[in-house]
Write a protein that binds this DNA or RNA. Structure first.
Length: 906
RNA sequence: GGGUUGGUGGUCUAGUCUGGUUAUGACACCUCCUUGACAUGGAGGAGGCCGGCAGUUCAAAUCUGCCCCAACCCA
């Protein structure tokens, strides 16, 4: 656009022309990274209280950068930039989360390979290579956001150092007796042939059929007899011939292990304690009462199979039922399914329904649509399978974890409730093993003979039992010499819950035989930022792990950010097609403007993407730029402070002091939206609209010159956490010492402003601004240009010291400050009561008092200073009389909140 | 189904914990104004009775109960 702009050195900021964010923002982003402006230099001796450390969330870099990343990191950056200026050392690290199924898939696609064809260690090597490209791309995009991340302080969850920490964590918890291995069901994807965690499963609407199947009731048996040998000895007569259950999955009937009836279900109570014979397959199962049965659904009688759904698992565990596995890991029917063996579940379903029908057991069949749990990656309906799993014991420490949550500061406070409810509702220990082909391996082997677990030695970590040998030749338990490698890998939360320990450089020290940290001054971390949707995952698990390893709560505070919604306040989703891409936003708007928008929401609240807020941000950047140009023409860059500041200048600096104090408070409490609004209002309205206009008429005044420059420098510093690029550009153009090619003295490493202690009559200043604005309104209403001269103005009100300012800015020829109220006749317009005092004192009488005043039935006794109404005598401080003035002199009278202005304009 | 959070002019929101009678600001809208940087600027105006109902209170956007709506978490 600006082809005629003379070319200049790219690192030579000037205020010439208008602000060009495209060129300027990327220039600073490069320079900050090149110069290591935000590098954290560790010093283990440093007092932890003077270091501000953020435990940043590691995004999955094989995915794309979305608005959530942008918003989350921008929030963290507000905190980081403020703390860096206010307190000095800040660690703002960055993590890449590559250790997951996403990067596994990506590697397979990119290289056109299958992970099954490689040894796990080899495959992971390939993963690391593939991910490196994506990491580089992600890094570029993150750097485009201008966050003050220390790019020399990064980690990848797939790297050996992190694998070592994960395995150390496992060994430590095992030695503490906080981990155990047990046979239990897991969610299984038959397409991927892997166990998946609950978060990887989603609901999907599918067409299916409900099948009503008749089960024959056979001779009942007592609880005692059944538990002795599992067979009915003396069958009683069955209460009825049969009953009907409804199921969408008839192929599971060979896996049926029991039938349930609700204890309040009077109609079917007769069945409890009896047995049912499964059609076609012929095996008998007990009928049991349980209140988890949904009586409203179907016949109210439900079969339990191992396993059709999560409720089956609950029942299986609660009633100690046997395991009948009819479906294998690839969703093929097993031997247990008899003649259906080898069929897929779908084939078996049809075949079994047909046979049931033929034999008269199928009573009804109709089409339905219902929610089915599917694997989010391949949309395959999941199965549930039993395998041996590792667990971290957490149920016995619920109280400790709750207490840890109480010890942290929560921003916003209300988010603690979610954490508390999550913990209170915990019913299962934490399952940490995943039967995946890649991930961080459990460092464990088992004795082939006695199944005794053999743990890896700490100094050997990281190990992969599939490639490495166990550290012993013979089983310490039974002496057997052959071992089986554990094939499972850790749940990704088991690794990402260690980020504070990764960032602090946690490791085992052989010499001292204890865990140590490379950067102990960082731990506990000052801030854990994250979204509210993963409080029960990331935050909770981090607290569990770090608390068990260090005995300390890992964070002083947690900052829970909301979600970015679309412009209609609806959740962004690919299927709705309302996703806003950061790339598109950044192509159109300056990053600083995007940051201004990001600061608009109260922390923790979901908020919409709003173009108008971005435009407002752009306007602010221009305002700041243009105001800076004006300041630069009005005063020398570095004026000395005069012995005595004039009232108007002292007033500005005193107001500035107030603003600094409030802003500091807001930033310390992560109240970015309040800080943003306070600063914008003060900068735009007070500084630009009021003070700069006045300053234009006081160009050679040393007092004003000093105040202008002091305020301007301070504004740049106060804006710096929000608008890092534009403030840096202006700062370098106007105030930076040294030559352009010297090491950068960035505004972002300066000290945060502190109030300078200016005292001024803020009320007089306020009154003066009221008078100015009244005169402006007068001109506006009379369609006069603002620089139109006014002949004569008189002011009744305290504007001491501001007379010149009023006179200059409003072009008033003669200004007079009146000692006495101008010639007016007054009459009572209204009476304001001080209800806060009046209410508690007079109670129900307040109504009468109000009515009395309303009706004019009152008397003001000026001498006694009381108001007589409704038979009461109200003291002076309880009421205020509002007078309506009628001016009878020459000219025109304008009233403001605290002044009376008389204009003679001819 | 259970829990949590929220519902304030056309839009986004402050205020709600600590009840006090004129509900904050921005954007959009209307009118006017070229003022020594900014018309992508400035001045002014109109617009809401605070999701609904009931209650507590002298007084409710604010406290209590129920209901409706939305999002999230858990089932």
């Amino acid at each position: 656009m600006s082809t005629e702009t003379p070319e200049r050195a790219s690192d030579d900021p000037t205020l010439e022309g208008s602000y060009d964010p495209t060129e300027i923002e990327s220039r600073w982003q490069r320079r900050w990274v090149d110069e290591g402006t935000y590098a954290y230099e560790s010093d283990p001796e440093r007092d932890p209280n003077t270091v501000y450390a953020i435990d940043t969330p590691p995004p999955t870099v094989s995915g794309s950068l979305h608005m959530g990343h942008l918003y989350g990191h921008t929030l963290q950056d507000f905190a980081a930039r403020f703390q860096r200026m206010a307190d000095g050392d800040v660690l703002f690290p960055f993590g890449y989360d590559d250790n997951g199924i996403a990067s596994e898939r990506l590697t397979e696609q990119e290289l056109d390979i299958r992970h099954q064809d490689y040894e796990r260690r080899e495959f992971q090597e390939l993963c690391r290579e593939v991910c490196t490209e994506y990491e580089a791309e992600f890094t570029d995009k993150m750097q485009d956001l201008g966050c003050s991340i220390d790019w020399s302080n990064t980690y990848k969850t797939i790297e050996p150092r992190v694998q070592r920490i994960s395995q150390l964590s496992f060994l430590d918890l095992y030695e503490q007796g906080r981990e155990y291995r047990k046979k239990a069901p897991a969610i299984w994807c038959p397409e991927c042939e892997t166990a998946i965690s609950q978060v990887e499963m989603e609901d999907d609407e599918r067409h299916s059929h409900f099948n009503d199947i008749a089960f024959e009731v056979v001779g009942g048996e007592s609880e005692e007899r059944r538990s002795s040998d599992g067979r009915a000895e003396n069958p009683r007569d069955p209460p009825r011939e049969e009953f009907v259950i409804s199921t969408t999955r008839p192929e599971l009937i060979p896996a049926c292990v029991s039938v349930f009836v609700h204890p309040d279900d009077d109609e079917n109570q007769d069945l409890v304690g009896e047995s049912a014979r499964i059609p076609i397959f012929g095996h008998e199962v007990p009928i049991i009462a349980d209140d988890r049965v949904d009586m409203e659904k179907g016949s109210g009688i439900v079969m339990c199979c191992t396993f059709g759904d999560q409720k089956d698992i609950e029942w299986y565990q609660a009633h100690d039922l046997p395991l009948r596995v009819a479906i294998d890991e690839s969703a093929t029917m097993t031997e247990l399914a008899g003649k259906y063996e080898g069929l897929s579940t779908e084939e078996a379903r049809e075949a079994i329904v047909e046979d049931l029908d033929e034999e008269g057991y199928l009573r009804d069949r109709w089409e339905i649509t219902h929610a089915v749990g599917v694997h989010e990656r391949c949309d395959t309906p999941v199965e549930f399978r039993v395998s041996k799993q590792w667990y971290v014991e957490i149920l016995d420490h619920k109280e400790e974890y709750l207490e840890a949550g109480r010890e942290m500061e929560w921003y916003p406070e209300k988010m603690f409730t979610r954490y508390r409810h999550w913990i209170e509702g915990l019913e299962w220990d934490w399952l940490i093993s995943r039967q995946r082909d890649s991930g961080i391996p459990f460092p464990v082997w088992y004795c082939e003979e006695c199944d005794h677990p053999v743990m890896a030695e700490r100094e050997d970590l990281p190990v992969d039992p599939l490639s490495d040998e166990p550290p012993v030749d013979a089983c310490p338990e039974c002496g057997h010499d052959a071992f089986e490698a554990e094939e499972d890998v850790f749940d990704t939360w088991a690794t990402s819950s260690l980020t504070p320990l990764i960032n602090a450089g946690w490791d085992w020290d052989d010499e001292s035989e204890e865990f140590v940290m490379d950067h102990p001054e960082l731990y506990p971390f000052d801030l854990r930022p994250q979204g509210h949707d993963i409080i029960s995952f990331w935050l909770f698990h981090t607290i569990v792990k770090c608390y068990e390893h260090t005995g300390e709560v890992p964070f002083d505070a947690t900052l829970i950010n909301g979600h970015v919604l679309d412009e209609n306040r609806e959740k962004m989703s690919k299927s709705r097609g309302n996703v806003v891409e950061p790339d598109d936003v950044l192509a159109e708007y300056p990053v600083d403007a995007v940051r201004f928008w990001a600061a608009s929401a109260a922390v923790g609240d979901d908020f919409p993407y709003q173009e108008k807020d971005l435009r407002a941000g752009e306007k602010l950047l221009r305002k700041l730029w243009n105001a800076s140009k004006l300041v630069d023409t009005l005063a020398p860059a570095d004026p000395d402070e005069p012995d005595e500041l004039e009232a108007i200048d002292r007033w500005l600096l005193a107001e500035l002091d107030d603003a600094i104090a409030e802003l500091t408070d807001y930033f310390e409490n992560y109240e970015f939206a309040k800080a943003r609004d306070r600063l914008r209002t003060f900068f735009w309205n007070t500084f630009c609209d009021d003070y700069l206009e006045i300053a234009k008429g006081r160009e050679d005044n040393p007092s004003t010159g000093y105040a202008l420059r002091t305020a301007h420098r301070t504004f740049l510093e106060l804006w710096a956490p929000f608008l890092p690029h534009v403030t840096e550009e202006i700062w370098q153009a106007l105030y930076a010492d040294g030559q352009p090619r010297d090491a950068l003295e960035s505004i972002h490493t300066r000290d945060w402003p502190v109030p300078r202690g200016y005292e001024a009559d803020l009320e007089a200043g306020e009154t003066a601004m009221e008078v100015i604005s009244a005169l402006r309104r007068y001109k506006s209403e009379n369609q006069l240009p603002l620089n139109e001269a006014l002949e004569s103005v008189s002011v009744y009100g305290s504007v001491e010291g501001f007379e010149d300012a009023i006179q200059n800015v409003m072009h008033v020829r003669t200004l007079e400050v009146l000692e006495e109220e101008p010639e007016v006749t007054t009459e009572v317009a209204s009476i304001d009561l001080d209800y806060a005092t009046l209410g508690p004192e007079y109670g129900a009488k307040v109504g009468e008092i109000d009515a009395g005043i309303e009706a004019g039935e009152y008397e003001i006794d000026d001498d006694a200073g009381v108001l007589r109404v409704a038979g009461e005598e109200l003291a002076d401080e309880l009421f205020e009389v509002d007078l309506e003035r009628t001016y009878s002199g020459d000219g025109r009278m304008i009233e403001t909140e605290s002044a009376v202005v008389v204009l003679e304009d001819d």
